[in-house]
Amino acid sequence: MGKKRIGVLGCAHILDRALFTPLKSLEHLGVHAIASRTKPKAESYADKHGIPHAFGSYEELLACEEVDFVYIALSNELHAEWAIRALQAGKPVLVEKPICLNTEELRRLMDAQAASGLPVLEGLMVQHHPWQSKIKRMVGENAYGRLLQVRSQISVPFQDPERQNYRSFPERGGGAFYDFGCYWLQFLQAVLGLEPLGCDAESDFAGPGGCDWTFRAALEYADEVRAELVASFELPGISRHTLEFERAVVTVDDFFRASMGTYRITIRIQDKQTGAVEKLAFEPQNYFVNQLAFFSDVLDGTKDNVPIAQSYERMAMHERLLALARAKRPGNPLASG
């Protein structure tokens, strides 16, 4: 099969590390066209990255018959509309996270996907790495006894005093939970499922525009297993999952690192009785290389796609937690789900 030609909607900063750099490792994929609502911006990206075609509208790119699939790197509030329009134009879609802003949008996208029969993949790049499967096996096999709790922190310091970034606008999917909560929910979905017995969430929504600059959430599972998240734009930079079992503490630290380039991910296992530490290190990998290779295989029919229903399950839980947090602003009584 020949080289697959990608059409890119949007000129977002993430393209350098999510697409252009990873493609250097994937000879069977290449960017054929890029579109922006400002044609000089598209032309600037095309000149810099050697892209054959630059368009001044998204419609023009979708009408390009030479494009094999579309990569959507637009602002969050535009994801649903342009994913649907790409499918209607006969293009498979890889869309940056979050796939949509709410379940209503996602239902429309799911209808469009079903009507087209074309694959749609939400760009949660961390799921394309074997460390998650390894953790899932540890839990499923009771490798270190019964799982007791899961603690996750995902924080990246971020400031936007002049409100120039989508993260400062609630209506555009701003706030720490929209940015980071999807990674937590995907991890729990893969390891424990997303059918908890109860849930809770809180934030003071003190960020720009009333966004959540720090968000805390918890899911309660059977056997008293509790999964907690701290997502923040205020706390020091951390991306860490810690799983406490009866006999060991298992940590995946700095798990975002493989989104910045080709790096090693290590699982640290500490025996609770002896203190002895075992490290399981994976060969250096790049999440975005893995994600693009996976989607290419899906298009070739050699791998099954991640079901879009998983995105819906995550978005439904996202909405539930966000509603809980908003319902109990400071001064309101504690609510629980």
Results as ranks from 00 to 15, higher is better:
166 Y>F: 12
166 Y>G: 09
166 Y>N: 10
169 F>Y: 11
170 P>A: 05
170 P>L: 15
171 E>M: 01
172 R>E: 14
172 R>F: 13
172 R>G: 13
173 G>H: 12
173 G>R: 08
174 G>N: 05
175 G>N: 10
175 G>T: 05
175 G>K: 10
177 F>L: 02
177 F>W: 04
177 F>I: 02
178 Y>V: 15
178 Y>L: 12
178 Y>S: 12
178 Y>E: 05
179 D>A: 13
180 F>S: 06
180 F>G: 06
180 F>H: 10
181 G>L: 03
182 C>N: 14
182 C>R: 13
183 Y>A: 12
184 W>F: 14
185 L>R: 01
186 Q>P: 00
187 F>T: 06
187 F>K: 04
188 L>Y: 01
188 L>H: 10
188 L>K: 04
188 L>D: 07
188 L>V: 02
189 Q>K: 10
190 A>G: 04
190 A>V: 02
191 V>C: 03
191 V>L: 04
191 V>D: 07
191 V>H: 03
191 V>F: 05
192 L>W: 07
193 G>E: 04
193 G>A: 03
194 L>R: 03
194 L>K: 03
194 L>V: 06
195 E>Y: 04
196 P>E: 09
196 P>C: 09
197 L>M: 13
197 L>C: 14
197 L>I: 10
198 G>F: 00
198 G>L: 04
199 C>P: 00
199 C>N: 03
199 C>G: 11
200 D>E: 07
201 A>L: 00
201 A>R: 00
202 E>Q: 11
203 S>P: 07
203 S>K: 08
204 D>N: 14
204 D>V: 14
204 D>E: 15
205 F>W: 11
205 F>M: 08
205 F>S: 14
205 F>P: 13
206 A>L: 15
206 A>R: 15
206 A>H: 15
206 A>F: 12
207 G>H: 00
208 P>W: 09
209 G>W: 06
209 G>P: 09
210 G>A: 09
210 G>C: 07
210 G>W: 02
210 G>V: 06
210 G>F: 01
211 C>T: 15
211 C>H: 13
211 C>V: 15
211 C>S: 15
211 C>D: 14
211 C>K: 11
212 D>A: 15
212 D>H: 14
212 D>L: 14
214 T>F: 11
215 F>E: 08
215 F>L: 09
216 R>K: 12
216 R>Y: 10
217 A>V: 06
217 A>N: 03
217 A>Q: 01
218 A>E: 07
218 A>R: 04
218 A>Y: 00
218 A>Q: 05
218 A>K: 02
219 L>K: 09
220 E>K: 13
220 E>D: 12
221 Y>R: 07
222 A>I: 05
222 A>C: 09
223 D>V: 02
223 D>K: 01
223 D>N: 05
223 D>F: 06
224 E>H: 05
224 E>F: 00
225 V>Q: 02
226 R>T: 10
226 R>L: 11
227 A>Y: 01
229 L>T: 03
229 L>I: 03
230 V>D: 00
230 V>N: 00
230 V>P: 01
231 A>N: 10
231 A>C: 10
231 A>T: 07
232 S>G: 11
232 S>I: 04
232 S>L: 06
233 F>I: 11
234 E>P: 13
234 E>N: 14
234 E>L: 15
235 L>G: 02
235 L>W: 03
235 L>Y: 02
